[in-house]
């Protein structure tokens, strides 16, 4: 069953086209990844699906029903975890979840039961009478999720929920998404971190400048750039490395110099590893390790758009 259908979705802000004729479907049980750099149109699309913004053109269906004609039905079946924390710090944990769940028509024992269930899921049952103002960032993030899932939405939208958080909380959120998915939720996950999308999403759409560049499973997307490879060389210091000289080596397409790792994007068919290593040795750059990687989503994006996801 199609949980979400976008047909020719377009959003204009004056002359600027934020989302340009996007057509996508998300089936029941999927974790659908929206991958793209900042300003690609991910959040605008999400805002239109959740009813925060009106589309300029196009149609959105939730569970087969047009969200304009069946606004209440659509909203009843959507939960959203916004990028920024959206909780009341002067309400207790329990009051926060109860308040938002109550807006979805839950009352009485059913409301209590589902609030308790959501708090249990995010591991905040023992904190239900605490005020989130005293919480760590990670605990606030968990409460943020609980507020979105207590009414048991069919479609859960998570808009860059891992931006600016510590690795532990990030892992917790990713695990939660997998668990929620196993429990039956269909999830739309937006991010500009390709590692996260690669890890959890069953299907991915890469967006840029408001358009869907490519869409499919991780394997389908990687197949787009099977003729490329990445060579990661760990060095003691990047002092004497000149990118222009490495780029002159046959097959090398681009180079990224980090503090200790040099990432070289190269043509798969050209065997240039010896020449690259020779460059490092002749310039007395100490090599710690060399690793050849097959193409990832970062490369897919780079190949299709000519720029990095985090540019």
């Amino acid at each position: 069953m199609k949980v979400l259908e976008m047909k020719g979705l377009t959003k204009k802000f004056g002359d600027f086209i934020a989302v340009d004729n996007v057509t996508l479907t998300v089936a029941e049980g999927e974790i659908f990844g929206f991958l793209g750099p900042n300003g690609a149109g991910k959040s605008t699309s999400i805002h239109m699906i959740s009813g925060l913004l009106r589309s300029t053109f196009g149609q959105i269906n939730i569970l087969g029903k047009d969200i304009v004609k069946h606004r209440k039905f659509a909203k009843m079946n959507i939960g959203i975890v916004p990028q920024d924390l959206a909780i009341y710090e002067d309400l207790t944990v329990y009051e926060n979840v109860k308040f938002f769940a109550g807006l979805y028509g839950l009352r009485g024992s059913r409301l209590k039961e589902q609030v308790a269930e959501a708090l249990e899921f995010v591991g905040l049952s023992d904190k239900h009478n605490s005020y989130p103002i005293n919480f760590s960032g990670g605990m606030k993030r968990r409460l943020n999720i609980a507020c979105a899932i207590a009414h048991r939405p069919k479609l859960l939208i998570m808009d860059e929920p891992t931006v600016g958080i510590d690795p532990q909380t990030r892992n917790y959120i990713l695990d939660s998404i997998k668990k929620l998915n196993k429990m039956g939720s269909t999830i739309i996950y937006t991010s500009h971190y390709m590692e996260e999308v690669e890890e959890i999403c069953t299907r991915i759409a890469i967006v840029d400048h408001g358009k869907v560049i490519v869409e499919g499973t991780k394997e389908q997307l990687q197949a787009v750039v099977t003729d490329k490879k990445d060579i990661w060389i760990e060095v003691k210091s990047n002092k004497n490395i000149r990118a222009q000289e490495i780029e002159k080596i046959k097959g090398v397409e681009s180079i990224q110099i980090d503090e200790r790792v040099i990432k070289i994007h190269s043509d798969m068919d050209i065997n240039n590893l010896n020449q690259i290593i020779q460059y490092f040795l002749s310039n007395e750059i100490e090599i710690r390790s060399v690793e050849e990687k097959s193409s990832n989503l970062e490369n897919v994006f780079l190949t299709l758009t000519g720029r990095n996801l985090r540019d």
Binding site: G51, F100, L103
Partner: peptide
């Protein structure tokens, strides 16, 4: 929280 309120039915 404005977004949460608006996305609610």
């Amino acid at each position: 929280t404005a977004d949460r309120l608006i996305v609610a039915p």
